[in-house]
Design a protein around this nucleic acid. Sequence first.
DNA 1: TTCCAGGACATTT
DNA 2: AAATGTCATGGA
Length: 307
Amino acid sequence: MLAEAETLDQKSIEIHISTPEEFNYHECLVFLARSDEERLHFIQNEKIRKLLKVGDKFILFEVSNPTPGHLQIEPLNCIPSKPDREFVKNFISDWFDLATDLKPFYKLARTEKLLNQLVKNHFGLRLIKIDDLFQALCWAILGQQINIRFAYTLYRRFIEAFGEKLDFNGQKYWLFPKPEVISEISVNDLMRLQMTGRKSEYIIGLAQQMARGEISKEKLLAYRNFEKARDKLLSIRGVGSWTANYVMMRCLGDRNAFPIEDIGLHNAIKNQLNLKEKPSIGEIEKLSAGWNGWQAYITFYLYRSLL
DNA sequence: TTCCAGGACATTT
DNA sequence: AAATGTCATGGA
């Protein structure tokens, strides 16, 4: 298949996306490269490879930033149709949150020491999104009350056990498992991966709700009201305030989402301000009084500061 | 070995 | 309502 593609003009199948002024590819790459257990994208030589499935077609592509101001996306395993190219383009734009104008955030940052440091250190970092709602919720549930490193181990095992994959030139590229698959497995199937009984129940219950169509990203976005979407998320067993806000931030694009109970957030603030102890929720509420509209971005920048 | 980790839920006061 | 206990395992 590649040979066939190579006989064609490669330029004709490349996709280009122009990037805003406040965009730094490398800053985003550092976040994406934070774990070697990652299976949903593959980074090598500043290039990102990712697999998507559109209908029943696999599309494997490579993202790079050859010159400032735009991203280049090169399909590797196929010659996508025009609608598929548009799909990939939209996916990348959402993944790197390219549509958000960061100028007001950076203007706000000049007024506060904490924000000023973050923006100075990570200029151009975008809030890396998790497109798939089931994936975002599972990742958050896995991350509850355990260290991120172990959460990543569980995440990798889950993907390798139940996800689809494409072999391409000796490398495996994975897709996140589908709710329809996970809704059919047993708690023991997940406990074998070292998940706790609780987490296993949460994830299977969630998968069943999503497989039945009771919960979907489309339905949540159709509310056009983040409060209602949050309430719906909170109705899911295993989803509390932290998880709901985390998913609002990483998947649904709510810039006001603020997982204020987040231990990582607490540690990041402690580091940035050289505090002796982690700040209390009350202290963070005071500290964040002027962050309206940018809580999600600030949280993401604080996560980045921990790497 | 102890304590903690990007919490949620059930139980007890 | 608010505090306390439980889940449960790897990592530092």
